[in-house]
């Protein structure tokens, strides 16, 4: 179902896709594909993406998470926002080759959620909501980047093991370097996720958003599982000082859980803050119950 309002995000996807092609091309065939093109198309995509979110926000008068589609593209915006900042701080060579394709693919997937009738059921001017959503989104963004780094780690590790010394081998940084960055992104994401979950818990307790059985909500359960996975991972790193392949594999598992918590729960019919429009919303139900 094509709408005029899709155009900016389609442009964004086209730019991300161009960036993907160029960032992969700059490794495979550096004479033809200029790395700078990859960088600038990504930046241009990011600006259009930002503009689109501002537009959505102004249109609805809320932060753009009023439905699943908007939340998804807001999350993707966070991923790039965190990436651009980290790249500026730490210089992450060739990470875009792993991250931008992922963002492009997720962006295309996000498109399929538009037109879904799930909309948010609570007031977006709520302090708790912002305190719940923003840390979690930035945390998820950090986990997305650590996922890309894990893929990069395992790729480089495989190349070293199998003695495949191609163009990609030369472009990628050292295993130790990737490992350190993975650690940095994880230690950024985890406190934020914790904070977001704590605020979420406060919110749900004080305002009874998800009903009395809130702890049986899929998203709550999976969120907790995600938290535990990353807690275990950080424990491995901090206490047992684990490195290498195992950490990379667990980071990948953690990200799969993140994605499942974020999107998968909708397929399972979670009503976590979103509601099918043709049913009475929670708030309405709550109102009805009130005397």
């Amino acid at each position: 179902m094509f709408k005029l309002s899709h155009i900016p995000f389609i442009i964004t996807i086209v730019l991300y896709f161009t960036s993907t092609v160029w960032s992969i091309g700059s490794i495979v065939c550096p004479h033809f594909f200029n790395k700078k093109v990859a960088k600038w198309t990504m930046m241009m995509g990011f600006f259009v993406h930002s503009g689109f979110l501002v537009f959505l926000g102004l249109e609805s008068g809320n932060i753009p998470i009023t439905n699943v589609y908007e939340s998804f593209i807001s999350l993707l915006w966070c991923v790039l926002f965190v990436y651009i900042n980290l790249d500026y701080l730490y210089k992450l060579p060739s990470l875009d080759t792993f991250l931008v394709p992922l963002v492009t693919a997720l962006s295309i997937w996000a498109m399929t959620f538009d037109g879904g009738n799930l909309i948010i059921t609570v007031s977006l001017q709520n302090f708790w909501l912002v305190a719940h959503i923003i840390p979690i989104f930035v945390g998820y963004a950090a986990f997305t980047i650590s996922f890309s780094l894990s893929i990069m780690y395992l790729t480089q590790q495989r190349q070293l093991k199998l003695k495949l010394f191609g163009a990609l081998f030369n472009k990628l940084p050292s295993l130790e370097g990737i490992d350190k960055l993975m650690w940095k992104t994880l230690s950024l994401g985890f406190p934020l996720l914790t904070l977001g979950l704590v605020f979420g818990a406060f919110w749900v307790r004080t305002q009874n958003i998800l009903g009395d059985m809130w702890y049986l909500d899929y998203k709550v359960i999976l969120g907790l599982a995600t938290w535990l996975t990353y807690a275990a991972l950080l424990h491995m790193r901090l206490v047992a000082s684990f490195h290498g392949t195992k950490v990379a594999c667990m980071t990948i598992a953690g990200f799969c859980l993140v994605l499942f918590t974020f999107i998968g729960t909708f397929f399972m019919g979670s009503k976590h803050a979103f509601q099918k429009t043709n049913e009475p919303t929670h708030i309405e139900v709550l109102k009805e119950r009130m005397p």
């Binding site: 480089q156 940084p173 050292s174 370097g177």
Partner: peptide, 8 residues
């Protein structure tokens, strides 16, 4: 060079 691909 290989060592540099393993250690930072």
């Amino acid at each position: 060079e290989f060592a540099e691909k393993i250690f930072q």
